[in-house]
């Protein structure tokens, strides 16, 4: 056997998948901007993605903020820079931790659910049934979910910013004996609009990635229950990797010029 055969096969499979994702993304975007719009369905998904993800995102954010405060205290105490803890918590929460952790948590909660739901609809011919009922599956299944993901993730991240900073405040004030007013003033003075906006833009991109991967893997799932299970796993894994990749790219775009 030619040793290059498996490499070639892998390369073709990769390019094929990449091509399918690009076409799928193009179709999804074209249906997001073209009527008809299913407002009731968009609203339902916004509620599912936004409101019902609040507890898990809130818990993640508060513990992240608390851990950052503790860790930076141990580190900064070595060179008497404890005063910078409030700044570090605010910066790391708004720029990185809130968007990335929210993206990853929502990927596990929503991306998996989307892939499982659309995947089940695919293998039970419900997606085909939509087509025979003069309803475009992209418009009815994909576009509302992506739209909801892109709009709800920034809101979730905004809430996570507040709760994460609160977590740092709780540790700083009640465990490390910082002055509450000083802690809040430090946070307020140091944080800039770009820190928050960059996190919200990242969140919107992550919302797009999570819902797109859920829809894509669900839409192309096959082979019954096993196929749906595989689609769910693939949706979460691919969304998580893409979130980390795009986090790097977006951080580069936002902050490379003024590090």
């Amino acid at each position: 056997m030619n040793p290059f055969q498996p490499i070639g096969r892998l390369a073709f499979a990769f390019l094929g998948t990449l091509g399918r994702i690009v076409v799928f993304t193009g179709l999804a975007l074209s249906h997001i901007i073209r009527p008809p719009f299913y407002f009731r369905i968009i609203g339902r998904h916004m509620l599912e993605i936004g409101y019902y993800s609040l507890p898990v995102v809130g818990l993640t954010a508060i513990f992240a903020g608390m851990v950052i405060a503790l860790q930076s205290f141990t580190g900064f105490a070595r060179f008497n820079a404890e005063g910078a803890i409030a700044n570090v918590v605010a910066l790391s929460i708004t720029r990185e931790l809130a968007p990335v952790l929210t993206g990853l948590m929502v990927s596990g909660r929503i991306g998996a659910a989307i892939a499982a739901e659309i995947g089940t609809m695919r293998v039970t011919e419900q997606v085909d049934a939509l087509t025979t009922l003069s309803t475009n599956p992209f418009k009815y299944l994909v576009a509302p979910r992506i739209l909801a993901g892109m709009t709800m993730l920034p809101l979730l991240v905004f809430v996570a910013d507040i709760i994460g900073i609160l977590g740092g405040y709780i540790v700083g004030v009640y465990q490390l004996d910082f002055n509450p007013a000083n802690y809040l003033q430090n946070t307020y003075d140091f944080i800039s609009a770009l820190d928050i906006v960059s996190g919200l833009v990242k969140a919107s991109v992550f919302g797009f990635i999570v819902t797109l991967m859920g829809c894509y893997h669900g839409y192309y799932s096959k082979g019954g229950a096993q196929g749906v299970g595989q689609a769910t796993t693939n949706a979460v894994v691919s969304a998580s990797i893409l979130i980390l990749l795009f986090n790097y790219i977006l951080t580069g775009i936002f902050f490379a010029a003024n590090v």
Partner: peptide, 18 residues
């Protein structure tokens, strides 16, 4: 879409929306 507007289909597993 023009053709599917004229069509009704009964699927093997009924394919009702869950």
């Amino acid at each position: 879409e023009a053709v599917n507007a004229k069509v009704g289909m009964l699927f093997q597993g009924a394919a009702l929306f869950d």
